[in-house]
Write a protein that binds this DNA or RNA. Structure first.
Lengths: 136, 136
DNA sequence: AGAACAGTTGAACAGATGTGCAAGTGTTCT
DNA sequence: AGAACACTTGCACATCTGTTCAACTGTTCT
């Protein structure tokens, strides 16, 4: 059982920090679930589409060049996290963002994305000794 | 080839919307990747821990009751998205949030999570006909 | 009622991802 | 130099998730 070996490295060495988390497990679960729903480009695209106004499934499908089933499944995920809501309108069902709040989330991520090129976490440390070229 | 069948449902029926997305593919990719990194509770917990100040891997491992390897892998994911940064301090390596910006993201999600109970997207439609009990 | 349209849902598959173990790298201490 | 500590990385395995096809539900039109 992976119990961590208590190291000689005490919190005080760095700062006074690392007492137990202030966030409750439930909130964490929800947040993680929301992030997971947002973690796929196709779903993000749907939100982008919906940010311009409500659309029915067929419309989204046409815009994305996908079939209804696929779009419906994606919407299902988004709906499960209350990111979008739906409303019947005769034969079709219109989807729309649950609230503008959600766009903040996406814009925030987008903003962070632009700040750093992200990716394979390369050169960033001061590199104290600056060894010669790394192979990988 | 799942080409969508163009329906009789034209955009104008709902609103004037659904022209092509205003967001570029690259940004979407990044955003999705960031969200994916945030989509697991264990990683969220690490961020929560780091929000209280820098910690070394051993410290995080001890706090979470996990082994170094596991924590290291999680940090790797977070680092790949530039959510955390590291800095050597002698024998240990201190990790810290890349910037406070990130907490906004999490708090935003947390906020949204509290707003709605989320989950299995149940009763929400006005239920026009309110048919009797659904079997499933 | 029956046909056609609009979506949803279930199941099967493939690809992606987290976890944990073992082995490897970089630092400090003796 | 060698030993011990602090991490990181490669791998294998089990799990999860997205996509797609087929079948089913709900609406509107004739």
């Amino acid at each position: 059982m992976a119990r961590a070996t208590k190291p000689d490295c005490k919190p005080a060495d760095h700062r006074g920090a690392a007492r137990h988390l202030p966030v409750n497990p439930e909130a964490m679960d929800r947040a993680a679930a929301i992030f997971r729903a947002l973690s796929e480009v196709p779903r993000l695209r749907i939100l982008a589409l919906l940010s311009q106004g409500p659309s029915c499934v067929s419309e989204l499908a046409a815009a994305e060049g996908e079939d209804l089933s696929t779009i419906s499944q994606r919407l299902r995920v988004l709906r499960a996290e209350r990111l979008v809501k739906r409303q019947r309108a005769g034969k079709h069902i219109n989807y729309s963002l649950a609230d503008q709040h959600i766009l903040d989330l996406v814009f925030n991520a987008l903003a962070h994305a632009s700040e750093a090129p992200a990716a394979a976490a390369a050169a960033s440390e001061p590199s104290p000794s600056a060894k010669k070229g790394k192979s990988r």
